[in-house]
């Protein structure tokens, strides 16, 4: 079984899938990613599937599972680079990936994560401002 490498760039974990995915590799990736997010405190995960020729229901479900798991670690997931033929097939297959954020390419995926991180910092900042007010009341 081939293991898919996970790269860390700043606060983002990048997974670029370059192999024909075997189910076992998919399951291993889910576990490896959960461990890596927990260990690094990364705020985002990008899964680059620009080299992936097919996404079937099992692989599609992996994206949803990874996104849901990373949410539990306060991290956002973006799937980037889906090929047009894969997108058409996924819709016909009946898999909507409703909960999974997608972006056209890596650059746009990183921009989305950057924006989410900025919003998060802002929200945390507002929380800090709120506290003294609440303490006085």
């Amino acid at each position: 079984m081939d293991r898919i490498p996970i790269l860390k760039i700043g606060q983002v974990l990048l997974v670029s899938i370059q192999i024909d995915l075997q189910d076992q590799s998919v399951l291993a990736l889910q576990e490896d990613l959960a461990e890596q997010i927990s260990a690094t405190g990364a705020h985002g995960v990008i899964i680059d599937i620009s080299a992936v020729e097919i996404v079937d229901s099992f692989i599609g479900r992996m994206f949803a599972t990874i996104a849901a798991t990373s949410r539990l670690f306060d991290a956002d997931t973006v799937v980037v680079g889906m090929r047009p033929a894969v997108a058409i097939t996924l819709v016909e297959l009946g898999l909507t990936l409703g909960q999974v954020r997608t972006a056209l390419n890596l650059e746009k995926g990183l921009a989305i994560l950057g924006k989410l991180a900025a919003e998060r910092e802002l929200a945390e900042g507002l929380d800090d401002l709120d506290e003294p007010v609440q303490a006085n009341s």
Binding site: A85, I88, T89, L93
Partner: peptide, 12 residues
């Protein structure tokens, strides 16, 4: 597109 559909169906 048809290749991708067929291969996906075969995979399932």
């Amino acid at each position: 597109v048809d290749q991708t559909k067929l291969v996906t169906a075969a995979s399932e």
